[in-house]
């Protein structure tokens, strides 16, 4: 009995220790980036490094004022916002249809959506670059957002599918018997209930676009997004610019993941099916 107790206590220590170690592994590198971003440019290029931040904003200021950064930020926001809107507007109706109806071709559509996961989607940028020049979408936020939407749309479909499936059909049916049309029942009963989840999947779409590098670098020339700007200037940009840029790239993603944390697991649980 006491052996068992020691065994269990030892197990708890082991668990706790491993968890702490893993937290350090995840958070440590982010801290180092943070350290670099809040140090003066001379400290960033200097050696050896200090392990505590000096809260010097010169590096970040240098980055923000650097030629092309402000517009790159603006482009990233535009593209990510467009991606977010497109993937929800296109994906949510499909998710609703999958959750509520049995119809011929349903499995075909699901296969098409799931198939997108077996393809390296950023490669789509190659043929689209040619197509865009023909239709005048080259080097535009919308053109890039369309590619990012192929990345985000499958998630939007599967996530909204799971959200709608979580709302009992009876709630809608009850609304129908109480005088609602299909559209009214959707607006008054389903929409309020799925709104938080829809918001989470919209944020997720935003992050997918915000972080994407390859397609962004292929499809933009003058109107670079932040990732494309940072990638194509890797060879020439000074260290403080790189690290401050990395920090600005990471920060919104951290906030967004925090906002959607509740939905992350539910979303992926269904995406398995």
């Amino acid at each position: 009995m006491s052996d068992n107790a020691t065994f269990r206590r030892r197990g708890r220590w082991l668990t706790g220790g491993s968890v702490l170690l893993l937290c350090a592994w995840v958070l440590g590198p982010i801290y180092l980036l943070f350290l670099n971003s809040f140090s003066s440019p001379s400290a960033v290029t200097g050696f050896p490094k200090h392990w505590l931040p000096s809260f010097n904003l010169d590096s970040l200021q240098f980055f923000i004022e650097f030629q092309g950064v402000a517009s790159a930020l603006w482009n990233s926001i535009q593209v990510a916002t467009l991606t977010m809107v497109l993937s929800i507007v296109l994906g949510a109706p499909a998710g609703y249809a999958l959750s509520r109806f049995e119809f011929r071709g349903k499995s075909l559509f699901r296969i098409m959506v799931l198939m997108t996961r077996a393809f390296p989607l950023p490669l789509l940028a190659l043929p689209l670059a040619v197509m865009y020049i023909r239709v005048g979408l080259d080097d535009t936020p919308l053109g890039l957002a369309l590619v990012h939407t192929t990345l985000a749309l499958p998630f939007a479909v599967l996530i909204t599918f799971s959200l709608f499936s979580g709302i009992p059909v009876e709630l809608e049916e009850a609304a129908w018997t109480m005088g609602c049309t299909r559209a009214q029942a959707f607006r008054k009963v389903v929409l309020p209930l799925v709104m938080p989840g829809i918001t989470a999947s919209a944020i997720f779409a935003f992050v997918i676009s915000w972080n994407e590098v390859f397609a962004a670098s292929v499809l933009t020339v003058q109107h670079r997004t932040l990732t494309a700007f940072l990638l194509t200037s890797l060879d020439v940009s000074p260290l403080p610019l790189k690290f401050a840029g990395g920090f600005v790239l990471v920060l919104p993603a951290l906030i967004f993941i925090f906002l959607v944390r509740k939905y992350l697991f539910a979303m992926w649980g269904i995406a398995n099916r």
């Binding site: 968890v19 937290c23 982010i30 940072l230 790189k242 790239l249 951290l254 993941i257 944390r261 992350l264």
Partner: peptide, 29 residues
């Protein structure tokens, strides 16, 4: 703990590259 473990999910591969560059570069950590 789950939130901390999932933080990298929101981080782009470019940012991750830059973060580890800060560690491995010549005057790095």
């Amino acid at each position: 703990i789950l939130y901390i473990f999932t933080i990298p999910l929101g981080i782009s591969d470019l940012a991750a590259g830059l973060i580890w560059f800060a560690i491995f570069q010549q005057t790095g950590f």
